[in-house]
Design a protein around this nucleic acid. Structure first.
Length: 623
RNA sequence: GCGUCCGUAGCUCAAUUGGAUAGAGCAUCGGUCUUCGGAACCGAGGGUUGCAGGUUCGAGUCCUGCCGGGCGUACCA
């Protein structure tokens, strides 16, 4: 079992015309290295070859060619030879690999300490663009070995309205699901709702002691959210909170044991108490309707909604099984697994009052998923602050001995916190957490103001465009950042029309639409009779090469579950298109350039749209 | 205290996981144009990558020690 990181995705390098350029080149390097090893020219074990060909990458600078290999430098030490000699040894064998010469120009002398630089042949580039142009997958190959991957994301606490804290898990998880699915994996998305924990004890206690029936009738989730916040203060009974909240202070004075009573309400719910169970069943539909409306607006959906309550029947057995195997034991009245010695905090699976914890649920969930879905990987798209929990969870699972655990990769896809411009967690001016709904509303409203300058849009269309641009901006701002770092939330930055933003990309798509519309081009006809591709200008070549990196980028995204690699590439692609479009006439050009450029423009538009779609971001024809 | 992540241009962030001269946007300054959508394109200035050592062909990235911060740390999730 791999707890910390994902297994390398199947590279599937093939030397013979299929796959991305990088795949083909890696295949050729594998052939060359295998040959060198067989001749005894280089000390290369077959098992080392995948890691070595991994060092074949896009060049940092176009002047070095299109792809570059750095493997000679590392190999030189093992071989006891000069890096340049090793590079020459490998490079001279490349042209003998099947299909190499049809796709690449033979590498020249190694550069610097031993870089092997390779350039794609222009005719191979043109052929690949033609193929991508006709391909519904836009030239992106499917993985050779599809995996079954469970993605656990969003997972809101249903007792309170969704807020800004849910956005990253939802947006990143959805994008990862879309990308891996397009890559050809079997994806199972599961919304592991928090629908059974102490938060329900709080709202049940609140319901019994301080509910507002009229408010509940008018807006159930708002009233439940109010109860949750209020009872939380009462139960925690922190002096500074109570000082700021007279109502909570009064309640706390009347109910000094509120904290214990909340836990008792939770325990009663878990024990099957009829009254609490009925309340839970009454609250749930309203909670679910609320969050489903938000998912609809975000364009996010799930295959399953197996929340904590679903796994409740299995929890006692999980603990019993852990005890039977000698993993879990009693301590201070609770039950836990001591993973790091007796003096370190254990991984608790049962509290002293007998109630179970989310650790218990997570273990039961793993077992259930293994039994029913037989996944190769389970991804948890969850806040980095829960890193320690997942360390302990994965460690415990590794010791557990449930069938299938030895061959599943459990991965915590962690992400940073959303901050306000003061560098602290994003809050409203009054210090409350920001509701997701109002966050989206403000984004859409501001987007509306930005696009208001366009005179040609009818009111109805303008609203639709504002929704697409506003929500796209919020999602993109999140996805374009390295997911492991915290990021500062700023409407002004995310709605910039230049730079690495959704609006810039959406605008690039709309410009492509504009050109084709202006030229009266029938895109279906264009695609059924594709024009010859003649990339004569360096800017055309750069654009074509970028388009064909789509599949490589998606592979890189999967390797570390990093959607920001996709946004970076999309921004680069849109920039190359702008440079191309600015410098070279399309409609006014003579054949064969006209047809070639029309095809490049159309293909760029489709690739940009597909790339944004894989991020869960929509596009518009006009904006 | 222990664990963990981070410190990169004035600001917000990248950097293909050890590769070639550390890149973008905003802001500042300058240029292009008889607009296929100028919401564009091209360019300039701006850096001792927190500090000090070390490892090697090569370090923002790995190791050690400091300085400064975020987060987590027994019965919430």
């Amino acid at each position: 079992m791999t707890a910390a990181s994902a297994p390398a995705p199947p590279a599937g390098p093939s030397p013979d015309g299929a796959g991305t350029f990088r795949d083909r080149l890696r295949g050729a390097f594998a052939t060359a290295l295998t040959g060198a090893a067989a001749d005894g020219a280089l000390p290369v074990a077959a098992a080392d070859i995948p890691a070595l060909v991994d060092q074949v990458r896009e060049t940092a600078d176009a002047k070095f060619g299109d792809y570059s290999a750095t493997l000679a430098m590392g190999l030189a030490k093992k071989a006891g030879r000069k890096p340049r000699d090793v590079a020459i040894e490998v490079a001279t064998r490349l042209p003998t690999a099947p299909g190499f010469e049809a796709t690449f120009t033979p590498p020249g002398d190694p550069v610097g300490p031993g870089f092997i630089n390779v350039r794609v042949r222009d005719d191979a580039l043109a052929a690949a663009i033609s193929a991508a142009f006709r391909d519904p997958r836009l030239g992106v190959p499917k993985v050779a070995a599809p995996a079954t991957i469970v993605i656990d994301f969003s997972s809101p606490n249903v007792a309170k309205p969704m807020h800004v804290g849910h956005i990253r898990s939802t947006v990143i998880g959805d994008a990862v699901a879309r990308i891996l699915s397009f890559r050809g994996h079997r994806i199972i998305t599961d919304n592991h709702l928090g629908d059974w924990g102490t938060q329900f004890g709080m709202i049940i206690w609140g319901w019994k002691h301080c509910r507002d029936d009229a408010a509940f009738a008018a807006d159930p989730t708002a009233e439940l959210g109010r109860l949750y916040r209020l009872v939380r203060r009462v139960a925690d009974a922190k002096p500074e909170d109570l000082a700021a909240d007279p109502q909570a202070a009064a309640l706390a004075a009347r109910h000094p044991a509120a904290g214990r009573e909340v836990l008792e309400e939770t325990a009663k719910l878990h024990a099957g108490d009829a009254e609490n169970r009925a309340l839970w069943e009454r609250f749930m539909p309203a909670c679910l309707a609320d969050i489903e409306r938000l998912y609809g607006r975000l364009g996010v959906s799930f295959d399953h909604w197996l929340g904590e309550s679903f796994f409740q029947p299995f929890l006692a057995d999980v603990v019993a099984d852990l005890e039977r195997r000698g993993l879990a034991r009693e301590s201070r009245g609770a039950t836990g697994i001591f993973l790091d010695g007796d003096d370190k905090p254990p991984f608790l699976v049962r509290k002293a009052d007998g109630a179970f914890l989310y650790a218990t649920t997570d273990l039961a969930t793993i077992r259930w998923r293994l039994e029913h879905w037989k996944p190769d990987r389970i991804l948890y798209v969850v806040d980095h602050r829960q890193g320690q929990h997942f360390d302990q969870l994965f460690k415990t699972a590794g010791l557990w001995g449930v069938p299938g655990l030895d061959r599943v990769a459990l991965v915590h896809v962690a992400f940073g916190t959303v901050l306000g411009d003061d560098g602290k967690p994003f809050k409203t001016r009054s210090g409350d957490t920001v509701g997701l709904e109002s966050l989206l509303d403000e984004g859409v409203e501001r987007a509306g103001a930005v696009i208001a300058a366009d005179e040609g849009l009818a009111e109805e269309e303008r609203r639709r465009v504002a929704e697409t641009v506003g929500i796209g901006a919020i999602k993109y701002a999140d996805l374009c950042q390295n997911r492991t770092t915290d990021y500062v939330f700023s409407y002004d930055k995310m709605l910039e029309l230049k730079g690495n933003t959704a609006a810039y990309m959406q605008y690039a798509v709309a410009r492509v639409e504009g050109v084709l519309e202006k030229g009266g081009i029938d895109r279906e006809a264009l695609r059924s009779a594709p024009p010859a591709i003649v990339p004569v200008d360096p800017r055309e070549r750069a654009l074509a090469l970028a388009i064909l990196r789509f599949g490589e980028v998606l592979e890189d995204v999967e390797a570390d579950y990093r959607p920001n690699l996709l946004t970076t590439w999309l921004y680069d692609l849109a920039g190359r298109y702008s440079a191309f479009y600015d410098a070279l006439p399309i409609l006014k050009a003579a054949e064969p350039e006209r047809g070639s450029r029309l095809a490049l423009a159309d293909l760029t538009g489709r690739v940009l749209r597909k790339g944004l779609d894989l991020l869960g971001i929509g596009t518009v024809r006009r904006m």
